[in-house]
Design a protein around this nucleic acid. Structure first.
Lengths: 217, 217
DNA sequence: CGTGCCATGTCAGTTGCTGTCATCGGAGGT
DNA sequence: ACCTCCGATGACAGCAACTGACATGGCACG
């Protein structure tokens, strides 16, 4: 027989997600998580750098996805188009890997706590930096690369929020495309004046099924 | 005579900024800050909610600035144009209030520490949310408002980074305008293909004086 | 069959942050 | 002149997140 129950990390994740959902993030202590997992506090910190990491350990391979997508974009694509492609790919992976209901549970925990929102933001900022670096690698200028990365992530955030609150799985890439289309319409003079309500251009179905609260992480 | 030296808050800020600069943020304890300021640890936390707040207490009135700028934008302006106006206004205020050298010192402290970067990001995210809310107030649709807010802040970040590393004061609003112009060129088909280096459109001087490191906050 | 590895346990310590109560100069009223 | 309340600070105790150092014992590998 083994000395310890297997899958310590998994038990810690399960216990943490449960407790975060039950009592909220702040009001669960690491000692409680460890106890529910049948481990010690010290062991928790051997698997997760801090209390928040449990919610973010899953997205470790995203940077590689972004890099690969940008490296594989057609040579004639604009920087922004390449960045768009990259975040669409990530969206697809997220939607497949964990699914929308998991994303929603996770989102609910995160929006309830500023510390977690900070962690989420720094993750997204690092994705933006990854995109910018990959674009620079292709010869795109500094400012254009950074802008494309930052803006692509900004658009993705909006699309992701819409998706999480939506009713059906598997449409995150489409929502992302729609959000990019809407962004283009926002910069195009002659559309989307302040004061008119739906700024979504025809063809982009960004406003499908009515607006949702779309809590901003 | 008064019971205590006056301006406790100011002394705390001075002591904290000095120590953060000298030893770095993590390696200065609140006890040290309080001691240098001639106060107790407990008093520090009466003035600043946490150790990081010292670096962020100055930007409290920015949301009002953003709201006012958007409320005062011409009725015919696009949402993105209104958002651009707002962040330009903020840039002007920041440049005037503290100046570029202070901004650089502050930036150096922040880029050296992830906790502080998180705090910076959540501040910027709240600005984006403020812009979005102000636009919604004017009848702009949910998605368009969020997109404009997020993207305007993303562009502002890039412009700010360029400004902080640049050589002269007072040009932040111009750099912001240039960054917006470049963003437009990035979405315009036919320019800024991947593989060509300077994507800045003619007239927008976004690439003035050669690229800088532009460390991302 | 021996030996070293590695995941976990144990324990002690630092630090950020909070609650609570005491203290005392100053402002305002009488 | 005296009283009284207020507000800023001090003093102290405590919690919880994290860290470093060392011990332990199955298990893989030679």
């Amino acid at each position: 027989m083994t000395r310890w129950e297997p899958n310590a990390r998994g038990r810690l994740e399960l216990a943490a997600m449960e407790l975060y959902g039950e009592r909220g993030f702040e009001r669960t202590t690491v000692a409680e998580i460890a106890e529910r997992a049948g481990l010690t506090e010290r062991t928790f910190f051997r698997h997760y750098a801090d209390k928040r990491e449990v919610l973010f350990a899953g997205s470790g391979e995203v940077p590689q996805l972004l890099e690969a997508a940008i490296a594989g974009a057609p040579r004639r694509a604009t920087p922004m188009a390449a960045a768009q492609r990259a975040v669409e790919t990530v969206g697809e992976a997220i939607a497949e890997q964990r699914g929308r209901v998991f994303a929603r549970r996770r989102r609910d925990i995160i929006v309830a706590n500023p510390e977690l929102q900070e962690r989420e933001l720094i993750k997204l900022a690092s994705w933006a930096a990854t995109i910018a670096a990959a674009l620079r690698e292709r010869g795109v200028g500094e400012a254009a690369a950074r802008l494309s990365g930052e803006v692509a992530i900004a658009v993705f955030r909006v699309a992701f929020a819409t998706w999480v609150d939506g009713p059906a799985d598997g449409e995150l890439p489409e929502l992302t495309r729609a959000a990019f289309a809407e962004l283009r319409s926002l910069s195009r003079p002659g559309t989307g004046r302040t004061g008119t309500s739906p700024a979504a251009a025809g063809g982009a179905r960004a406003t499908r099924r009515g607006k949702r609260p779309a809590a901003a992480p």
